[in-house]
Amino acid sequence: MSFHPKMSYDATFHRSARTLAPDDSGAPFVYTPENRARFDVFIQRYPADRKRSAVLPALYLVQHQQGFITGSAMRYVAGLLEITPADVEDVVSYYTMFYTKPVGTYVINVCRTLSCALNGAERVTEALSAKLGIAPGQTDASGTFTLQEVECLGACDRAPVIMVNDAWHECLTPSAVPTLVDDLRARGEAALSGCHHVIERKPQ
C-alpha cells in the first residue's frame, strides 16, 4: 500500500495532550490525616509485596484532596507504594479520569458514543457549549465548569447520559440543558437525576 498523501504526520498526530505537571513550588504534597487513614485501610487489600496495586485508589485520594494530580503528589504516592515516580506518572498519563491540571468545580462529562449520540448527545454537547460559553475540553473563566466528551458510560438505555464529577444525570434533552446548568450552579449535585435504577432515592 502506498503512503496516502493526506495522511501526514502533522503536529497533532497522536501526541498526548497531557504533560506532566511542572513541579509545584509550594509545599510538598502529603495526605490529610483522614486520607492517610483511608489509604491505610485499602492498602491491606493487596499482598504486602504488591503495594503497587493500590496506585489507582491512592491517586483518587490525591485528586479528592486537591482536585488534580501534581508532580509532587506523584512522588509522594511513589514513596508510599515503593515504586518510582515514573511508574506513577505512567499510570496517571494513561487513565482518562485523572487530571494533571486544575479543573472546574463541576466537571461535566457528556457521553458521546453511539447509543447516546443516536438519542441526541451531540445536541446536548452543543447546548452545554452554548450555555457555558466554552468548547469541550475547556474550563470556564470562573473555574466553575469544565466540559468534556467521554465514551460510553454503560447506561445507554437512559441516553443521553452525562456524568458530573462522580454523579450521574440521565435522559438529558438539549432543551433541558440551560435549566440544569442553572440548577447545578444553585444547588450543586442535588440538581442531578442520579441513576434511575435507584428507585429508593427521594424526589428532590
Partner: peptide, 24 residues
C-alpha cells in the same frame, strides 16, 4: 477495585495489569 477510565481494561490480561497497578 476501582478502574479509572480505560475501555481496554476490560480485556482480561489488561485488567490484570491494571489491578497490579500498571497501565491497562
Amino acid at each position: 477495585h476501582r478502574g479509572a477510565g480505560a475501555y481496554e481494561a476490560g480485556e482480561e490480561t489488561a485488567l490484570l495489569e491494571s489491578l497490579e497497578g500498571k497501565r491497562a
